[in-house]
Design a protein around this nucleic acid. Structure first.
Length: 144
DNA sequence: GCCAACGTTGGC
DNA sequence: GCCAACGTTGGC
């Protein structure tokens, strides 16, 4: 079981949007990732892996937990290459639970134990890894 | 709105 | 295969 962190701009797709879909029994395709490192992380995901949902730009905070419900598959919004293949892939996710308290980027940066978090070190990576120790600490900071 | 970090592209 | 130019992301 691995842990991840995935970013979305909430005015495009927010955690609340994901909760609404999950309540209807639907899953969300995490489409639109156009970065190889992020794609490789998604290909490494297993069903049941959990991920933090981070609101970038607006909020800049971790707002909840989601889980991987489908392995990486071709991105339905992905462009085709010269051979007619879809280059980009993505996983499907559903919400698990919101954080009682959102954990802001400022708080994360102020926490020495989180100084190695990929969210901090590789700020432009939209799908990053989280270690088990980091995961537990962030859950605690989020009030879980 | 600016800028730093970083990925991608294209000329050589 | 190197590197400069350019585009994009995301924090401030």
């Amino acid at each position: 079981m691995a842990y991840w962190l995935m970013k979305s701009e909430p005015d495009v797709f927010s955690f609340e949007d994901l909760v609404r879909k999950t309540e209807k029994g639907e899953a969300e395709e995490w489409h639109g990732v156009r970065n190889y490192a992020a794609r490789n992380n998604m290909k490494a995901m297993a069903i049941g892996d959990e991920a933090f949902f981070y609101h970038s730009n607006i909020g800049k905070e971790i707002v909840g937990i989601m889980k991987i419900v489908a392995l990486a598959h071709p991105d339905s919004t992905g462009e085709l290459n010269a051979k007619g293949e879809v280059v980009w892939e993505c996983v499907d996710v559903q919400s698990v639970k919101p954080f009682p308290r959102a954990v802001t980027l400022a708080e994360i940066k102020a926490t020495p134990e989180l100084s190695e978090l990929e969210l901090v070190k590789l700020s432009r990576l939209s799908v990053s890894k989280v270690s088990e120790a980091e995961w537990k600490l962030l859950c605690k900071m989020g009030g879980l």
